[in-house]
Amino acid sequence: MQKDVILFDGVCNFCNASINFVIDHDKSRRFCFASLQSDYGQAILREYQRSVQDFDTVLLVREGKLYEKSTAVLEIARHLAGWRWLYLFRFLPTSIRDFVYGLIARNRYSLFGKADACRIPTKEERALFLG
């Protein structure tokens, strides 16, 4: 199975906690990860013609398709043990879901803090990270 790639803001404490959550609940090891600031993340941003300086959304790359914001979150959740039920929110209009997502994204540093550097994966997690 080809792994789905989750791209995230590597200096955001909330984003790092979210990645830890995904790792803990991804029992099938479907996902691998890269920070948006990494060489790999920057290459993906360029490939999909996204800003290489805008890190305010999580991105999911699956089979050549790019998902972002609330849609990425729901696509990720649908594969996490105990959290698949969240996928039911896909029936809400994207504009509403992305509005809520945007509120959190815009305030994530003030609410959760910012690290000085990207997260360093543990020895066991290292194989899950790209770039």
Rank of each mutant, 00 (worst) to 15 (best):
Gln2Tyr: 04
Val5Glu: 02
Ile6Leu: 15
Ile6Met: 10
Leu7Trp: 01
Leu7Arg: 01
Phe14Cys: 08
Phe14Asn: 03
Cys15Phe: 05
Ile19Ser: 04
Ile19Phe: 00
Val22Arg: 12
Val22Pro: 06
Asp24His: 08
Asp24Cys: 06
Asp24Gly: 11
Asp24Thr: 11
His25Gly: 02
Lys27Ala: 14
Lys27Ser: 15
Arg30Leu: 08
Arg30Pro: 07
Cys32Trp: 06
Cys32Gly: 15
Gln42Phe: 07
Ala43Val: 05
Ala43Phe: 04
Ala43Gln: 04
Leu45Pro: 01
Arg46Val: 09
Glu47Asn: 07
Gln49Val: 06
Gln49Asn: 05
Gln49Trp: 07
Arg50Ile: 05
Asp54Asn: 15
Asp54Gly: 14
Phe55Gln: 04
Asp56Asn: 09
Thr57Phe: 08
Thr57Arg: 05
Val58Met: 11
Leu59Asp: 03
Leu59Tyr: 13
Leu60Tyr: 00
Leu60Phe: 03
Leu60Asp: 00
Leu60Lys: 00
Val61Asp: 02
Glu63Lys: 10
Glu63Gly: 07
Gly64Tyr: 01
Glu68Ile: 08
Glu68Asn: 12
Lys69Gln: 04
Ile76Asn: 02
Ala77Gln: 04
Arg78Phe: 11
Trp85Tyr: 10
Tyr87Lys: 07
Leu92Gly: 13
Pro93Asn: 04
Ser95Gly: 03
Ile96Leu: 14
Asp98Gln: 10
Phe99Gly: 08
Tyr101Asn: 06
Gly102Asp: 03
Leu103Phe: 06
Leu103Thr: 14
Ile104Leu: 04
Arg106Ala: 11
Arg108Asn: 03
Tyr109Lys: 15
Ser110Thr: 14
Ser110Val: 14
Phe112Ser: 14
Phe112Met: 05
Phe112Glu: 09
Phe112Tyr: 14
Lys114Glu: 15
Lys114Trp: 10
Ala115Asp: 10
Ala115Trp: 07
Ala117Lys: 15
Ala117Leu: 13
Arg119Asp: 04
Arg119Glu: 11
Pro121Leu: 01
Lys123Cys: 14
Arg126Ala: 15
Arg126Val: 14
Ala127Gln: 15
Leu128Thr: 02
Leu128Gln: 10
Leu128Met: 05
Phe129Thr: 08
Leu130Phe: 05
Leu130Thr: 04
Gly131Gln: 01
